[in-house]
Amino acid sequence: MKYMLLIYNNPEQQPQYGTPEFEAMMGGFFAANEKMKADGVLVDGESLNEPDTATSVRVKAGKTETMDGPFAETREYLGGYYIVDVPDLDTAVTYAEMIPSAAFGTIEVRALMDYNPAG
């Protein structure tokens, strides 16, 4: 079963470059990535550009409206994701715990829908 680990955090609360916390965070990401790779569960993972670079698009009555900025004004934004292929939710959660952002943000674990109407 594939799960997406969505990484939400408040950019203001992320450790800043030059601090020991920053080093620990980057090292933690490296370690998490290595572990997922060594366990053969890593399918994909990407970082997203900053939320203020987002463009939100809506089509209303056939007319396209674009808006600079993210869809919703919140504190925590989607900053990146991993997709892991693991047997169950519990295992997916153990990988979510390894992501350093879990300490100052939130990792949302969502299963990719396995749509099989016949099954």
């Binding site: 203001e12 965070m25 990401f29 990407e46 970082s47 900053e50 203020d52 990146g80 991993y82």
Partner: peptide, 13 residues
């Protein structure tokens, strides 16, 4: 807004 480090992107690089 401060530019967030993009750890997964760097990891991929």
């Amino acid at each position: 807004m401060t530019k967030p480090a993009a750890p997964i992107a760097i990891n991929n690089a």
